[in-house]
Nucleic acid binder design. Structure first.
Lengths: 213, 213
DNA sequence: TAGATTGTTAATCGATTAACAATC
DNA sequence: TAGATTGTTAATCGATTAACAATC
């Protein structure tokens, strides 16, 4: 495993391997081959092997990779062993759903608090505080928060992003379907459901056309 | 605009153009150039022009594209003018959030009903029915549903997918972080938040390392 | 030793970008 | 006519895949 730059394509495949490896029962064989992994995930063997070579320090010919260390290696590479504190802005339905999702622990993500323009309550179902957005930047600075999750309507997303950046945030995960203008050192990850819907919709159109002849 | 196969990459960019075009005020100029679009979305001019060439029947040199027709062309290409009926399985928080999202109309997506293994209520906040999963396949067949949205835990996702396919569904949008085994003619679109988190997490790790020197 | 599996090097494929020609 | 913009053709870049060598 070397300190090479790893492409986003590889990065996005790693969680798939990880979750499959973790889903295996405790009494499964201690070793697993790239072929087995590839078949289970519907991928090519070579691709899996190449991806794993980037994050692990190698499997053994004829035997495969030690499952336990592979899990550790991927988790370490993805930084899931370090906890990342985050804030969430927009305590609507989606925001609440994310706040309530227990699984983020697994990814080392810890949502500290939610912010909203008009908080109807003081805390979420899970007991996490909901503050007014006016406190956002200060809160981030004071708590050295590095990540912001945006679940506000598109028209407010840029304002929120600006406040997050003013608060010293380094990465933004946004669910608002709009482009954000940010400085070069800030990473924006768009979680845009519209892109998935486009792919699905076009596929269905083609299916319907086909049936009609 | 010809009947060429369009790559998923292009497909995923189209909603971005569309939403930007629609976000422009009514009194904005009737024409818009690829350059303007590219700048607004932080993309390259050539890429935008090439993408648009695939779905529109052309802009005019020196003037650009007619905004109205561009919107129509993209919407038609993506099939947003035809309504797609869908069912959703897993009426948890995420499921409820999706059921309640009004914006799907815009994409021609219409969620008819939700299904759950243990429905605690008979309908959602929005008045859409929640049925027991045992009725899933029959419901899909009877209502000629073509799309299923899976928001159940990973361990139940494959079972649900099988039932959907038995019910005649052609496309699956899944939020469960697990690979689904399906016949070749069924499209599965994975909405996997873990992939986004991986990208974000690695970026933050790098940032932290950098700061420490 | 034989065979399964890893890892690497080369070939292919496709997407993006750059350069240019066409047009209003 | 000049210039902005489109559209196309060629070049580059990077990811995936295939072929091979290394190893236990």
């Amino acid at each position: 495993m070397e300190n090479k730059k790893i492409s986003k394509f590889v990065l996005k495949r790693l969680p798939g391997y990880l979750s499959y490896l973790k889903s295996l029962p405790a009494d499964a064989p201690a070793h697993i081959s790239a072929t087995t992994l590839a078949n289970a995930l519907g991928m090519g063997q070579v691709q899996v092997r190449k991806d794993l070579a980037l994050v692990s320090d190698g499997g053994r010919p004829k035997i495969g990779y030690l499952r336990e260390s592979l899990i550790e290696d991927i988790e370490q590479f993805l930084g899931y062993d370090n906890t990342t504190d985050a804030v969430l802005i927009g305590a609507g339905k989606l925001g609440q759903a994310l706040m309530g999702y227990k699984g983020f622990d697994e990814y080392g993500l810890n949502i500290l608090a939610a912010f909203d323009a008009s908080p109807s309550r003081e805390c979420t179902d899970e007991g996490k505080p909901i503050y007014h957005v006016s406190r956002l930047a200060d809160y981030c600075r004071e708590n050295k928060v590095l990540m912001g999750i945006i679940t506000v309507p598109a028209e407010h997303a840029q304002t929120v992003a600006d406040q997050l950046i003013a608060g010293g945030i380094k990465a933004i995960w946004t669910f608002a379907p709009t482009h954000l203008e940010v400085p070069g050192n800030i990473l924006v990850q768009y979680e845009n459901m519209a892109t998935s819907l486009a792919v699905l919709s076009v596929h269905l159109q083609a299916q319907i056309k086909e049936e009609k002849g």
